[in-house]
Design a protein around this nucleic acid. Sequence first.
DNA 1: CTCGCGGCATAAGCTGGGGTTATGGGCAGA
DNA 2: TCTGCCCATAACCCCAGCTTATGCCGCGAG
Lengths: 313, 313
Amino acid sequence: MGRTDDHDHPGHRSASPGALAHRVPDLGALELLLAVARLGSLGGAAREVGITQPAASSRIRSMERQLGVALVDRSPRGSRLTDAGALVTDWARRIVEAAEAFDAGAQALRDRRDSRLRVAASMTIAEYLLPGWLLALRADRPDTAVSLLAGNSAAVAERLLSGEADVGFVEGLTVPAGLDSAVIAHDRLIVVVAPSHAWARRRRPIGAEELAGTPLILREKGSGTRQVLDAALGGLARPLIELSSTTAVKAAAVGGAGPAVLSELAVGEELAMRRLVRIPVDGIALARDLRAVWPTGHRPTGPARDLLSLTRG
Amino acid sequence: MGRTDDHDHPGHRSASPGALAHRVPDLGALELLLAVARLGSLGGAAREVGITQPAASSRIRSMERQLGVALVDRSPRGSRLTDAGALVTDWARRIVEAAEAFDAGAQALRDRRDSRLRVAASMTIAEYLLPGWLLALRADRPDTAVSLLAGNSAAVAERLLSGEADVGFVEGLTVPAGLDSAVIAHDRLIVVVAPSHAWARRRRPIGAEELAGTPLILREKGSGTRQVLDAALGGLARPLIELSSTTAVKAAAVGGAGPAVLSELAVGEELAMRRLVRIPVDGIALARDLRAVWPTGHRPTGPARDLLSLTRG
DNA sequence: CTCGCGGCATAAGCTGGGGTTATGGGCAGA
DNA sequence: TCTGCCCATAACCCCAGCTTATGCCGCGAG
């Protein structure tokens, strides 16, 4: 209940009810702002994003009104960013970058049929790595249409063997039968804690037994990362809580609930920001290879090879 | 209508003309999608974001049309995400997170006057760290209004000493006179190369002389990171190119132009994705402390103390 | 068996943000 | 002084997205 008067529920909702979209300019406006920053002119930016100068002018102005901050200094000779504008632009860039990754991924998800490069990938890789690769591929070979299918190792193998995919990516301890592979990266599981946790201040690495004896924030049994951890510890991992998404585990760890075990890929940013601290672990192998795979003998060619050369460098 | 000729410019524009906003759903739609994922129901999600059920239904449907992918499986008993939908949702979450950081920052930029906590911070900190802190603070103390002023160390000191700011953050080798400080984090400058670069495969760390002798991608002389590097090398850094923004340096490095020197904060994600590889450096100190500062004797209290406890943990 | 309820879809109508053309005014350099 | 680049304002238009009003479906309770 409690609807029908959803006029504004004054503040019993903790923080931002979810009106995020009303407080953050939309992508078009942010792109425009980046263009203004780069070109130093509203009109020029307008041309670049394909609208007219008055539209750009109005758009920027309404963005300033929305944020309550002057973003650009107009002059008859051009427009430069305010100090605050520069900061806002930097923040905006991160949104736009995330949107570009989204776009690259979504486009691959859509194409399906007539694409020149069909990729099958495991979830972790599809989630964290592929969008970046696709962006890089698009930069090199602008008109390579890519299609993406995400699934577990078995599904990837099946697609490859049935000829429905040109190249696959799996993370796992073993390579499915019938496939050749090349290691393209290493995904380490790492132990992280909030900076407030006692472990953040310890200097010596954690040993395997101590890790096995400590209740941890973990993904649910059966998940890929959990399997690797259990294997490394000999099935001994002791859950403090089990959560069903990487995001939830991250949130719990950041909140200080305890030590968590996560893929390094998932926490790059949190580590850089020191919202999480990595705890070295001694004596057990928490690394798993990320591999490109293809049907035995059918070494990737053409677009697939281009993609691989990006991932390996 | 004004379509003049926006009929579709058949592909002579290299890659993405910039119509990003037309290919990526807007923030409202993405928030709605996250709510659907969390609640398992269109109507429930609608309630959560404060719209009616038909609106949510239509919004999701049009998003599916836009992306060309089915995102949710509807049933008379609720809605669950498709496999593709789960992937899209993960990608969407990153956009929304960036937007939340933007919002937190922008809000602080606006408040100015009547805020209970006035922060002055250097650019690097304001850009990379503060939004995260503000989000955390908002989670803990939902109704603390924060205002932010970004500037160099001198400006931060001035604001503090004139009583216009309650707490400041600076990155630098020295603490401005009249201020007490506490180290809250360490910003390391790191050397990175694209994975394709020869250095990516070397095993031994780089020595100071070799680094000084190699042309590097650098920020322009006078920038904070450049100062630290020059100091560490004794003014010897040899530029391959000088660029005026961290982003440009990153882009050049990712593109393989050569080794770059960057703040660790700026490249967390790129490192995790292996778009850049970190090269260990031997024998020189590229670390600089990030410090919280306040007027001598006026140890932060109230909201300022809350913020500090977040940054130190 | 039949309500009642939660969940989704479709239909019709309204509104406002964002776009367009048209026009005007300032500042610089030829 | 004229010409070019820049920005602002005004008047108009359109569609995306919202709302209210219904209808259909499946399930569990009475």
